[in-house]
Computed example of a mutant assay.
Amino acid sequence: MMLKIYRVLGKKGRITIPYEIRQRIGFRYNDVLSFTQQNDGSVLVRREKICDNCNEFAEEFEENFTLEDFLDSLSEEEQRNALLHLSMLWAEKQKH
């Protein structure tokens, strides 16, 4: 069953993902989401897995915890894996 819910994009570009959608998809607090524009103009939103133990310290995150703070909290190997992952995503987008 397709669920369609409308939200208004705020002037700072913020929007709340509806609770029903977060529940169905399994999005959780502090998930890292990617947004990919498809050729037909639609946008694909997906949860990205950057590290294996992210949930171990997710409870410690503050509301204004930045991506930079998150990356600084990773081990060197996890930072390298995140960099490789993001670099591959960037390179893939450059092909299109």
Score class of each variant (00 low, 15 high):
Arg80Trp: 13
Leu44Pro: 02
Glu48Pro: 01
Cys54His: 15
Val8His: 13
Leu67Arg: 06
Phe65Ser: 03
Glu59Ile: 10
Asn81Arg: 13
Cys54Tyr: 09
Met1His: 14
Arg46Lys: 10
Asn81Pro: 00
Leu89Tyr: 07
Thr66Lys: 05
Ser73Ala: 10
Arg46Gln: 08
Gly26Cys: 07
Leu84His: 09
Leu3Ile: 06
Leu67Tyr: 14
Leu67Gly: 07
Gly10Leu: 09
Phe61Ser: 00
Asn30Ile: 09
Phe27Glu: 01
Asn39Trp: 04
Ala58Asn: 05
Ser73Arg: 07
Cys54Ser: 10
Leu67Asn: 04
Lys12Pro: 01
Lys11Met: 11
Leu33Glu: 02
Arg80Phe: 13
Arg7Ala: 09
Glu78Tyr: 01
Ile5Gln: 02
Lys4Val: 12
Glu48Gly: 04
Phe57Trp: 07
His85Glu: 06
Glu77Met: 12
Gly10Met: 09
Gln37His: 01
Phe61Ile: 02
Glu68Ala: 11
Glu77Leu: 15
Tyr29Ala: 14
His85Tyr: 14
Glu62Asn: 12
Thr66Met: 02
Gly41Cys: 00
Cys51Gln: 07
Phe65Asp: 03
Leu86Ser: 05
Glu48Ile: 13
Ile17Lys: 01
Ser87Glu: 06
Ile17Ala: 03
Lys93Cys: 05
Cys51Ala: 14
Glu62Lys: 13
Thr36Asp: 04
Asp31Met: 04
Leu83Trp: 11
Leu83Glu: 15
Ser87Gln: 09
Arg22Gly: 03
Arg22Ile: 03
Lys93His: 09
Thr16Met: 11
Arg24Thr: 04
Val8Met: 10
Ser75Asn: 05
Ile50His: 02
Ser87His: 12
Arg80Ser: 06
Ser87Cys: 07
Lys4Gly: 04
His85Gln: 11
Leu3His: 13
Asp52Gly: 05
Thr16Val: 14
Glu60Met: 10
Ala82Tyr: 03
Glu76His: 14
Thr16Ile: 14
Lys95Tyr: 06
Arg28Val: 10
Leu84Arg: 15
Asn53Met: 07
Tyr6Thr: 11
Glu92Thr: 14
Asn53Pro: 02
Phe35Val: 04
Lys49Phe: 07
Gln79Pro: 00
Arg47Gly: 03
Gly10His: 11
Asp52Leu: 14
Tyr19Gln: 12
Asp69His: 07
Leu67Gln: 05
Leu67Glu: 05
Leu86Asp: 03
Cys54Lys: 10
Glu60Asn: 15
Gln37Thr: 08
Gly10Arg: 13
Ile21Leu: 05
Met2Pro: 10
Lys93Arg: 14
Arg46Cys: 04
Asp72Gly: 02
Val32Trp: 02
Glu62Leu: 08
Thr16Ser: 11
Ile50Asp: 00
Glu63Cys: 08
Gln37Phe: 01
Gln79Met: 05
Leu71Arg: 05
Arg24Tyr: 12
Leu71Ala: 08
Cys54Arg: 09
Arg7Pro: 02
Lys49Ser: 10
Pro18Arg: 00
Asp72Trp: 09
Cys51Glu: 05
Phe57Thr: 10
Glu48Arg: 11
Arg22Cys: 15
Met2Arg: 15
Asp40Ser: 00
Glu60Lys: 14
Lys49Cys: 11
His96Phe: 06
Asp72Leu: 09
Lys49His: 10
Ile17Arg: 03
Glu77Tyr: 11
Phe27Asp: 02
Arg28Phe: 04
Lys49Thr: 12
Ile15Asp: 03
Leu74Cys: 06
Asn55His: 11
Cys51His: 06
Arg47Lys: 15
Phe65Gly: 01
Leu84Ser: 08
Leu67Trp: 09
Tyr29Pro: 07
His85Leu: 13
